[in-house]
Design a binder for these strands. Structure first.
Lengths: 215, 215
DNA sequence: TGATGTGAAGCGGTTCACAGCC
DNA sequence: GGCTGTGAACCGCTTCACATCA
């Protein structure tokens, strides 16, 4: 256990480990070694140990890790024992799709509200979730205790939306607009850029040698 | 220009550069130096030059890069001068949202077909796009010349879907299911794992010191 | 002069290998 | 004996700094 800076790559993997443990737990496994975990889920055992060691000494030498125990630890580290409320800005196809996206609830996130600027959409519902005027964003954030905002608006509006979100005191943002956003230092933004992923696939297809992915 | 292995990080940035150039072109800029490009879009100028140099000598010393010229080069490198057909497997909320996702057309991708296993959905349409029985995947891939598959099914079906896709000869896959998939070496998979992104935000929120993002 | 293209240095993350403990 | 936790080696990407050229 060190008081070092923990890289985002590590925390991303923590999330993966938790998923693996959930699967093992559902199969009734009591303990697991970093080696078995690595073999089973195509990970590297040294990396698993190193990642976990950033947060504490969870293992038992000669035995491995207790599945339920480690599961609890990871859940706590990732802050997943607490329910988080989410507000989605942009009630287009993507925003509404995310509104009842299964994975949100999996990860203890609840979508509390949708926001849009389009008069026609305001007041409508997607499932149980109402669409509000984005002008009232700050107000509803306070009322519903929203901690996470999702930006699902076209690229040209994304920066303005981010500023509104920031003013409302939101510190965690998931951005689907394909542009880099400028944010205050204490605001965490995760951008999911589908355009980059697509163009990366396109590049791959354009390569003459689509032969050897190897090992 | 070197015959080296080009990393995915580089190709991802190529996609970003193209976007920047599109913006400059739309503003009527004729030339741009790596330095101005970097300043404007918060990039590193040395990295821009190095990335571009993997693919050729596109710049002019003392001048910079010709915007239109470089735009053309990047478009060609990324294979974006050719239209690509996409098939989306899973006609749930996410799949249908992606079906008319604006960014697809932006990047020269056309969604040719949706696929699902649910009898009730088969035969229906989302916009212009028909939903087919996933059993007929291979057939329709051939007919419509589909090159890219999107996996938008629940995690437990994703691996099976991938195998079906692979058998049909698809080499480029975008996966939204939150599990690591095992693929043949010559198949390129881009996984967009929203659960990891969410849990990473959750971790951030759980940190006691949400103070100093710095620099 | 001004900006590219690139070898070299720097840095962060991954993997190795083993001492230490159950 | 088996497996963790971790210093050290390794590796690849980023950044620097400058020779090179229009």
């Amino acid at each position: 256990m060190k008081a070092e800076k923990i890289s985002e790559l590590t925390t991303n993997r923590m999330s993966v480990y938790l998923r693996c443990l959930n699967e093992l737990a559902s199969k009734g496994e009591k303990t697991v070694s970093s080696d078995r975990l690595a073999k089973r889920f195509h990970l590297n055992s040294a990396q698993i140990r190193k990642d976990l060691a950033y947060f504490g000494e969870f293992g038992v030498r000669g035995v491995g890790y207790y599945v339920e125990d480690l599961r609890g630890q990871l859940t706590k580290i990732l802050g997943l024992e607490i329910q988080h409320c989410v507000g989605i800005v942009g009630a287009g196809r993507l925003g509404t799709a995310l509104a009842d996206y299964y994975e949100f609830s999996q990860a203890n996130f609840t979508v509390a509200a949708l926001f849009d600027a389009d008069e026609k959409k305001i007041g409508q519902k997607v499932g149980d979730i109402e669409i509000f005027d984005v002008k009232n964003f700050a107000e509803i954030v306070k009322k519903d205790n929203i901690e996470v905002a999702v930006i699902a608006v076209p690229a040209e509006f994304a920066q303005a939306v981010l500023e509104r979100i920031t003013e409302a005191g939101i510190k965690a943002v998931m951005n689907f607009a394909p542009i880099p956003l400028k944010a205050a230092g204490d605001v965490k933004i995760k951008t999911v850029d589908l355009t980059i992923s697509l163009e990366s696939l396109s590049y791959f297809l354009a390569q003459p040698t689509v032969s050897n992915g190897k090992k």
